[in-house]
Amino acid sequence: MNKFLLSVHVLAAIIAIGPVTVAASMFPPYVRKAVAEPGDQKVTAALALLHRICRGYAAVGIVVPVFGVATAIGLGVLTDAWLIASMILTAAAAAVLLGRILPVQEALLAPEGDTAVRQSRHLGMTVGVFNLLWAVVVVLMIVRPGSTTGV
């Protein structure tokens, strides 16, 4: 059963988190392009699509921690420090996505002027933090400091 839970956890992370990190990273440059080329319907459509991808996969992403916790319980590592750190970082990443990235994307779906360019730069930095949080979680999941199976 643990192998099944772990497989679903890893697949869900790849399928749900991967697209969000890519789409969120692509959004700020498209905002700047939309400001530079006002009225370009392809750029406007791309912004809407990128936001829908982020919003949709954020909802699907709940599967990742659910199956992660189930796996941790099955493996008896729920109280290990590396896992607790991973859960805290995952919660932080979710908070950044839900509390900052998605609302700012929503506000920038029809960008205009220098304010939108500034917001897109701040959004880009926020997305960088979001992606860094996930990168650290992945490293912790692979290395598992202090575990008997860690490298």
Rank of each mutant, 00 (worst) to 15 (best):
M1T: 12
M1C: 11
K3R: 14
F4Y: 13
L6R: 13
V8T: 15
H9L: 12
V10T: 13
V10F: 06
L11F: 14
I14N: 04
I14E: 06
I15D: 07
I15T: 10
P19F: 00
V20H: 02
V22P: 02
A23H: 05
A24T: 06
M26L: 15
P29K: 03
Y30M: 06
V31T: 01
R32F: 00
R32E: 15
E37Q: 14
G39S: 09
G39Y: 10
D40I: 04
D40H: 08
Q41M: 07
K42V: 09
K42Y: 04
V43M: 02
T44S: 13
A46V: 02
A48V: 11
L49N: 06
L50P: 01
L50H: 01
R52P: 01
C54H: 01
R55C: 00
R55A: 15
Y57W: 12
V60H: 01
I62Y: 05
I62H: 11
I62F: 11
V63D: 08
V66H: 02
F67D: 05
G68W: 05
T71G: 02
A72Y: 07
A72M: 07
I73Y: 10
I73F: 14
G74F: 00
G74A: 03
L75I: 01
G76H: 03
T79E: 13
T79I: 11
A81N: 09
W82A: 09
W82R: 06
W82P: 05
L83H: 08
A85D: 05
A85Q: 14
S86M: 13
M87F: 12
M87T: 12
I88L: 14
L89N: 11
A92D: 04
A93G: 11
A93R: 08
A94W: 10
L97A: 03
G99R: 10
I101V: 15
I101D: 06
P103G: 08
V104M: 11
V104G: 01
V104S: 10
E106G: 15
E106H: 12
A107S: 14
A107T: 08
L108H: 09
L109M: 14
L109N: 08
A110N: 12
E112D: 12
E112Y: 01
E112G: 00
G113M: 07
A116H: 02
V117P: 00
R118H: 07
Q119I: 00
R121K: 15
H122M: 14
H122L: 12
T126V: 06
T126S: 10
V127M: 05
V127D: 01
V127T: 07
G128S: 07
L132P: 07
L132T: 15
L133C: 10
V136P: 04
V138P: 03
V139Q: 05
I142T: 12
V143R: 10
V143M: 09
R144Q: 13
R144K: 14
R144Y: 03
P145K: 08
G146V: 07
G146L: 07
G146M: 09
G146W: 08
S147V: 05
S147Y: 03
S147A: 14
T148H: 09
T149R: 13
G150T: 09
V151N: 11
